[in-house]
């Protein structure tokens, strides 16, 4: 029984981070129907932002968190302004491949500049474990989960309580109607890319407390984020939140009962099963 509880706790902790990453992805998709294949590369750059701030100025990852959010927000915004902007009316295939090209570009640029080495940030402010009964809590993971919850909450608040957030939602529901109501949709698209980037930048900085940093780190997270988004339903923020937690738990269950090598294979298998049975995902309305 304890092992099951432990698996659920560990799964939820990493699951909140998965949710945050997926929310960034699904937000962009929801607002403009474009899948950002470079999302994992954004995450990797968020991690490297925290890493280099630590190496150069001895910043703790938690101190780097706001800087990483801003840096990747800007990266997302720039990606929209200079790249994605150009394919808004292009055939769907071009829309798929443009962010795919961006991913290949960013990931390999990082490989070229920083080598494929695995790096780690030493002596972080948060470290170690504590126990409640038989259940062990890893403090860096707990902090990452808490940070993810806070930022997820902030995004929810922004989307439902502010005028700009509601304008963003309106653009997602009906682009043309939103435009007729005087919403500058181009600005909204750029904002969605910014927030999507900011979310994943935050996740990146939080991950550096306990995860290796390397140029291809985004690949696995990218796939998991896609799976999360598809499972939750493309464009559904609530769906991404729930799916992220589910995937965290499934991954841990599979890791313990089937073997660590197979944990992602099991996640993918369940993903395929779910989308075949319910192609719109758990909470997708579209």
């Amino acid at each position: 029984m304890d092992i099951i509880l432990q698996i659920i706790v560990s799964g939820l902790l990493i699951g909140f981070v998965y949710s945050l990453i997926a929310i960034g992805l699904t937000l962009i998709y929801g607002v403009m129907d474009i899948v950002n294949f470079a999302h994992g590369a954004f995450l990797m750059l968020g991690m490297f932002t925290a890493y280099w701030l630590n190496q150069l100025f001895n910043f703790d990852p938690l101190l780097s968190l706001p800087i990483s959010i801003i840096a990747i927000y800007l990266l997302g915004w720039l990606s929209y302004k200079f790249v994605v902007n150009k394919v808004l009316n292009a055939p769907p295939v071009a829309q798929i491949f443009v962010t795919f090209g961006l991913m290949v570009f960013l990931e390999n640029l990082a490989l070229f500049l920083w080598s494929p080495d695995f790096r780690i940030i030493k002596d972080t402010f948060v470290s170690g474990d504590f126990n409640i009964g038989e259940i062990m809590f890893n403090i860096p993971k707990l902090i990452a989960a808490l940070g993810s919850v806070l930022i997820t909450g902030a995004i929810f608040w922004f989307m439902s309580k502010t005028r700009t957030g509601r304008a963003l939602k309106a653009t997602a529901i009906n682009r043309d109607a939103a435009k007729l109501m005087g919403i500058n949709t181009d600005k909204m698209f750029a904002l969605a890319w910014g927030i999507g980037g900011g979310a994943v930048g935050a996740a990146g900085a939080l991950l550096t407390n306990f995860y290796y940093i390397f140029p291809t780190v985004g690949a696995t997270f990218n796939l998991l984020a896609f799976v999360t988004v598809a499972l939750g339903g493309f464009g559904s923020i609530q769906g991404a939140l729930v799916a992220g937690l589910l995937i965290g738990i499934i991954e841990n269950l599979a890791g313990v009962f089937i073997g660590p090598a197979f944990k992602y294979a099991v996640v993918f298998a369940i993903f395929i099963l779910v989308i075949v049975i319910r192609p719109n995902g758990l909470m997708g309305g579209k």
């Binding site: 790249v83 150009k86 394919v87 829309q95 491949f97 090209g101 290949v104």
Partner: peptide
């Protein structure tokens, strides 16, 4: 490659 794919998709 990445740059080329981006440019091809865009233009």
């Amino acid at each position: 490659y990445g740059l080329l794919i981006m440019l091809i998709s865009m233009y």
